[in-house]
Design a protein around this nucleic acid. Structure first.
Length: 638
RNA sequence: GCCCCCUUAGCUCAUUUGGUAGAGCAAUUGAUUUGUAAUCAAUAGGUGAUCUGUUCGAAUCAGAUAGGGGGCACCA
């Protein structure tokens, strides 16, 4: 006699076991038509799941957020069905739901072409129209493995083999097609509707391991309505316009060229932006008690061997040998250098925490496939620092770093910053007891910072656990920017010591931290974040002075002069062009403020101001504008 | 590094099956002296990424190399 409780608290009593669909019918015919799945005691199940005992249930319809996941999961199945109908012999592997859609990985000798994608999409629509009913069966493990092996589905057989013994092997049927799957699924496949689209084909390693074979991954997007799909596609198009590589070119900020892959040629305007960021950080770090230093670009490999970098990263380091037959590495990191500075002279516990910072340009021979505009380069500038401290100081210093990073990010208006806590990786240096200690300390620090975070298992640095501060680019890709790492290994390896209260020499802890991380990457993120419309203080050209005709040139030059005196970055457009033309060109060029001067302005000693993205004009006295701009162009206070 | 795709004028892009390349913007020159998102005209601009092959003939077909794009893997 199961009693089922509905979300509104109402209870229904049944004599025998009952399915979700039957309950939905009892509530209302319209609900039964909309019903997609079932939530039983918080767990999502198929709509035809038999309920045998008292439980809290909820009928899932398109209105529930979870419906989107169901739709996308089913869409992945439909994609696999379509592929197998069109390309017999293709093996299926996995097809999970991801943000905005799904993907499915296939094993097939021949590559899928863009044309195939169109065919597959058409076939998917056919399958949706067929609207096969979905049924679920639980199979014996051995039977399932043999069954899929006999079908030639070796990857599926392998997956079943790796499912923990206490879990059911559930097989879902959509008509005659079937797949191993955890479920739940829609009652029939046609319920996914037609608001989906296959987006791209890509390679992906079987089980995410680069030692394995490469599969072909088909990415798709799927939505509840056509309107949602169109909106998603439209937003994607808009986001692509914000691509920093595109804006970098049109805004004349930087370029790349094939003679130096992954290295930035900064143009004057891009460099001005870069330098503004450096100035900003320098100021913030001085306020936070850091001492800025500078260390050599090229250091003997002996030091890198000592630090452990050589063993782990040798193939990703640029090296150079000199006529005296020494091998040097071009620094990929600043930490060993900072340790050398720390090691000069005896340090006392009273010196700690000692914070050394550097805008250090580092070089890493990153895999060619990983290069990506400014986001991933082979030569970049870190706003790096190392805090030498005692174990007791780890938490306090870490909390300070976390706050500093978050405050700085907020100054740029970043809303969704993701924090990830990454613990010990497989390949690492140091004893596990030391790792236990440093992981505990960092976890304590992140908890004390009272911020949300996720766990990134096994993704720490080789010398210690880390917190990653992750920002998103225009099209939703995540990039690690800031980082904080607790290191109980390198100071010992690099002979750093301090004299403690008891007169004994001890090894300090080193906190590695970067705020922006890579200045190059952060600049890229910023360009996309602002869609190129940089705030006044960051804009390489802050003001364009546009005289109406050549009678106004002298006055325009006078304005230029006055702006330069208060360290505004102005430009003047003396070309013989119409004012409309000049306004358009400098608006497209994303200059925040246009100053128009004609006869009226010359006569009254005023300026007419027009701001980027606005049509409104504002006429003020030259004096007043100068003083207000001087304030407005300051870096934000944090 | 791996899979797939791309590379044509300074920029954005055409040239449908092989018959030696076009447009818009930008540039240059001239005219125009202009009041809030493109004034008009003329001129110039290309070893079609690079190399090698197939062919009577290659931007177009094949191969290699380089760079780039989308993913995967990597990311001190």
């Amino acid at each position: 006699m199961p009693i089922v409780q509905l979300p509104d608290g109402k209870e229904l009593t049944y004599k025998n076991s009952v399915t979700g669909l039957e309950i939905a019918k009892d509530i209302s015919i319209s609900l039964s038509k909309k019903a997609l799945a079932l939530q039983i005691d918080g767990e999502y199940k198929d709509l035809d799941t038999e309920i045998v005992k008292d439980s809290k249930i909820k009928i899932i319809t398109l209105e529930d957020e979870y419906a989107l996941e169901l739709l996308r999961h089913d869409a992945a199945h439909v994609c696999a069905m379509a592929v197998q109908e069109l390309f017999p012999g293709t093996q299926v592997t996995i097809g999970p739901v991801i943000e905005n859609g799904f993907y499915y990985d296939f094993a097939r000798e021949e590559p899928f072409t863009d044309n195939d994608l169109i065919k597959i999409e058409k076939k998917m629509i056919e399958i949706v129209d067929r609207n096969d009913k979905t049924t679920r069966e639980v199979w014996d493990r051995k039977k399932a493995i043999n069954h899929f092996k006999n079908m030639g589905e070796h990857y599926k057989a392998e997956i079943i083999d790796s499912i923990p013994g206490n879990e059911d092997i559930s097989i879902y049927f959509h008509g005659s097609w079937h797949d191993l799957c955890r479920g739940p699924h829609l009652p029939s496949i046609g319920r996914i509707g037609k608001s989906f689209k296959l987006m791209k084909v890509a390679g992906a390693y079987w089980r995410g391991d680069s030692n394995n074979i490469m599969l072909q991954r088909i990415y798709g997007t799927c939505w509840k309505t056509k309107k949602d799909l169109d909106e998603y596609l439209h937003n994607l198009e808009e986001a692509e316009k914000r691509d920093h590589r595109k804006l970098g070119k049109t805004m004349d900020l930087f370029h790349f060229q094939e003679e130096s892959p992954g290295a930035v040629f900064w143009h004057q305007k891009g460099w001005a932006l870069f330098q503004t960021l450096v100035d900003f950080m320098r100021q913030k770090q001085l306020e936070a008690g850091y001492q800025e230093v500078n260390t050599p670009e090229i250091i003997d490999r002996v030091l890198w061997e000592k630090s452990g970098h050589w063993e782990k990263f040798q193939e990703y380091m640029y090296t150079t040998s000199t006529p005296d037959e020494r091998t040097f590495a071009i620094k990929p990191m600043n930490c060993p250098g900072h340790c050398q500075i720390y090691n000069q002279g005896l340090k006392s516990y009273k010196d700690l925490p000692l914070k050394l910072s550097e805008f250090g340009k580092v070089h890493r021979y990153e895999p060619s496939g990983s290069l990506h505009g400014l986001m991933r380069v082979r030569s970049f500038t870190q706003d790096d620092a190392h805090i030498f401290c005692t174990e007791d100081q780890i938490t306090e210093e870490s909390v300070k770093v976390t706050k500093l990073i978050l405050d700085i990010y907020k100054a740029f208006g970043f809303e969704n910053i993701t924090l990830k806590y990454a613990d010990r990786p497989a390949k690492r240096v140091g004893d596990d007891s030391v790792w236990d200690q440093s992981e505990k300390a960092l976890l304590e620090a992140i908890k004390a910072s009272k911020v949300d975070y996720t766990i990134n298992k096994g993704e720490g640095a080789f010398y210690g656990p880390k917190i990653e501060f992750v920002l998103r680019d225009a099209i939703g890709r995540d990039w690690q920017c800031g980082t904080l790492q607790v290191d109980l290994n390198l100071p010992g390896r690099l002979d750093a010591t301090y004299v403690d209260k008891d007169g004994k020499k001890k090894t300090p802890v080193m906190l590695h931290r970067a705020l922006f991380g890579s200045l190059e990457r952060f600049t890229g993120i910023l360009i996309e974040h602002y869609a190129g419309k940089l705030p006044l203080w960051l804009s390489p050209v802050q003001v364009a002075i546009l005289p109406i005709n050549d009678e106004h040139h002298d006055y325009a030059k006078e304005i230029l002069n006055q702006l330069e005196k208060i360290s505004i970055r102005p430009m003047i457009d003396l070309r013989n062009e119409k004012i409309n033309y000049k306004i358009r060109e400098h608006s497209v060029g994303k200059i925040p403020i246009l100053m128009i001067c004609g006869s009226k302005e010359v006569q009254n000693k005023t300026i007419t101001l027009r701001r980027l993205g606005q049509e409104a004009q504002q006429t003020e006295s030259l004096e007043k504008i100068i003083s207000s701009l001087s304030k407005e162009s300051q870096a934000p206070k944090i």
